[in-house]
Design a binder for these strands. Structure first.
Lengths: 422, 422
DNA sequence: ACAGTTTCCCGTAAATGC
DNA sequence: TGCATTTACGGGAAACTG
């Protein structure tokens, strides 16, 4: 008969950062006659601390509230807790005998609600608790925390298995790929198409992806580093999500970023295209980078591919990506600079695709000559490569098939019923 | 017989930000025989709150310490307070009947030290306090706070006149100009020369500067806006100081930035110089901006001056200033771009001056084509102006005459004796 | 409405702990 | 020593508050 609501991180619920305020809401599901009753609710963090030695936190601020008739709205009695804040309990006497098995973002916690219902001298105690929570101390831990929240909610419907990451189950690629696409549609406004997911699957699993029920381990997804790289799969993918959110939103939503393409496929797509055809791809070697690759033909008819050094958030905050594409120039040994980007793959004239996204500098009336930064590459020597078999060009992405996932990864606790006991 | 030491902001002592840790040190000036004594020291914020209604703060953390034999070093007994933190007292019952005359950065506070000295059953109480302090709640108030600290210490030697800004005295231009130059030599490594100070004086006072004992009011210095601008004189100057500290340090220290030049003087300096001669000047219209002006001659022999839109910290963090000078290009209606900057005024070949400061991009071995940003201006039409009489070029700056100011603006409380009483 | 002031909190850097 | 985690706090922006 009662429903808890979740703390809200900016779009990332179930993650609480110490020292940062969060809110929660508890709702009584039974309708009460308007008699003289009182319902006092208390929030407690980690009420039944689990067996494994984990960090312990407490709610710093006032955590008790009374539901009264004012709070009665929308047909149900509820109470909002605001300005709640978590702080770690520090044991002066080093009792923290941590087994060190789990990282902090794998440690699951929970928020309990105790309600005391008083009617005409009678008191009834109610109790419920939240889905598992991850507690972090710095936003740098947010990607890791979000990985845990995703994995938990993808793979179990248990309301409170705090030992989940002691032995986390694997996810089938078909499950996982849906969640990944859903991440992009939720946070960037457009999901991933089959080709993009295919590349991600191969990156994660090798060539097994054809077999859609191949399973991915938690470790592979978020703990192990990609071979030869100093970061794991989810770290890499999340850095791209952040890059899109901050710097590429319109370009991404216009579907102009192919993004996830292997270099092999990229070359086979561009191979037979007109000179100056380019596509946009995320860097696989650096976190949060985007590059463009364009095709050229050298004098002897050989096909050449060029990729620019990936642009990261620092560069992109100095110059929006669409402007980079508009203004990019290559200067070879003192020749007049030229923009090598002509057609967005497969054959859209550059300005037709990006025209609306250019930042037309509103030339203010000043005594100054306005100046802008332009991205330029200086070529001394070329690396030319020819590539293997060609593959058919991919059509525009057609997602939207994943929107029903809101049920599966349900973080909106308003729609989740958690049957109340005791 | 005792000496207090000051809280330290990053190079800006006497300013404390709420919620941010500060330290202080108290020293006993008498040497004590090594007998069985104890000296307990307590720090109290705003012990004797002044009559004017001001904000009130308290020290959040532990504020009592005992000097014991361990602390005995360098021949004197001392105690360090670390991790002190200020928090505002909030009156639930709106007792804060503020007269609203003073801004928060004009409100002066102080830190008191009470010591209790116990020897063989005898106790002696000692007490001292700090120079006036400014309390801020956000770094955005730091320039205003620093203006107050400068003005106070420039114009009075009273140890604790907390009502100073109720009726602040004026400063003579000769005093003030020394302090301004000292700011640049302290925070940017090089002070201001006579020509630069002259421009600042005219900006502040009009043409009166010839008369060196002209006086500047506190209001003119830091409260009133410069006519037609949304910022005051000190705000403007401090924004330049910050720009130098973060982005122009080597260029400033090489004395390549003339910086403070009126547009009239600038033109008369460049007028008869060779085509492509340029100088670097701080923006007077925007906070924290630097521009270059170069001279050209149009086909009919007319002199033309061009200034680029000022570079601010955002642009400069994308591209270091020396590189901007190296790479800057102007493209006129499709013609081959050209760098119009040839000689740093008066006649130093650009690369000779800035060569050592260029960021030679270490071209990493990657499959990517490296790309850099270059600053470019596109010209459609020119504004040409001829200018009045020419003035002699100025020699390299010769400061260093201001270094004795350390006495006058003494914030290093270690060297300040504050006679102890009671 | 608004300006002065404070709070909030991300994101980087430094400090700390293990 | 190195890695994982926390703390510190500048800086931009939102919230507050008369």
């Amino acid at each position: 008969e009662k429903q808890p609501c979740m703390p809200t991180h900016p779009q990332k619920p179930l993650i609480i950062k110490t020292g940062v305020q969060f809110t929660t809401k508890v709702r009584l599901l039974v309708k009460l006659p308007e008699v003289d009753y009182q319902l006092k609710v208390k929030t407690i963090f980690d009420k039944d601390l689990p067996p494994g030695r984990v960090r312990q936190f407490f709610i710093l601020t006032n955590n008790t509230k009374v539901m009264d008739i004012e709070d009665y709205s929308n047909g149900c009695l509820s109470v909002d807790f605001r300005h709640l804040q978590l702080k770690e309990k520090k044991y002066i006497n080093g009792t923290k005998g941590s087994e060190g098995l789990l990282s902090v973002t794998e440690e699951l916690h929970s928020l309990s609600f105790e309600a005391c219902f008083t009617v005409q001298g009678l008191t009834i105690d109610l109790e419920t608790c939240s889905l598992p929570l991850v507690v972090i101390s710095n936003v740098s831990q947010l990607p890791g925390g979000w990985a845990s929240v995703m994995w938990y909610n993808l793979l179990t419907h248990e309301p409170r298995n705090l030992a989940f990451f002691g032995n986390p189950p694997r996810a089938s690629w078909s499950q996982l790929s849906e969640v990944l696409s859903w991440q992009f549609s939720t946070f960037a406004g457009r999901g991933l198409n089959k080709e993009q997911l295919n590349m991600l699957g191969e990156k994660l699993l090798g060539q097994h992806v054809s077999c859609n029920d191949y399973h991915v381990s938690w470790s592979k997804f978020s703990k192990e580093n990609i071979s030869g790289k100093p970061f794991g799969f989810w770290m890499w993918l999340d850095s791209i999500l952040e890059l899109i959110k901050k710097h590429l939103l319109p370009v991404w939503n216009e579907n102009y970023i192919m993004g996830f393409v292997s270099k092999e496929l990229e070359r086979s797509l561009l191979k037979d295209r007109e000179r100056g055809t380019f596509l946009l791809r995320f860097s696989e070697s650096h976190l949060g980078g985007i590059t463009f690759t364009w095709v050229e033909h050298s004098d002897n008819g050989e096909v050449k591919f060029n990729s620019v050094e990936p642009y990261t958030k620092n560069r992109l905050s100095a110059l929006p990506f669409a402007d980079i594409i508009r203004d990019y120039k290559v200067i070879s040994d003192g020749v007049v600079p030229e923009n090598p980007l002509k057609f967005l793959y497969p054959d859209i004239p550059k300005d037709e695709a990006f025209g609306r996204l250019y930042n037309s500098q509103p030339s203010k009336v000043t005594p100054y000559i306005t100046s802008t930064l332009i991205p330029i590459s200086e070529l001394r020597s070329h690396t030319s490569t020819s590539s293997p078999a060609c593959q058919s060009p991919e059509p525009p992405m057609t997602p939207g098939e994943f929107n029903m996932l809101n049920d599966q990864l349900c973080f909106d606790i308003d729609t989740m019923s958690s049957p109340y006991s005791e």
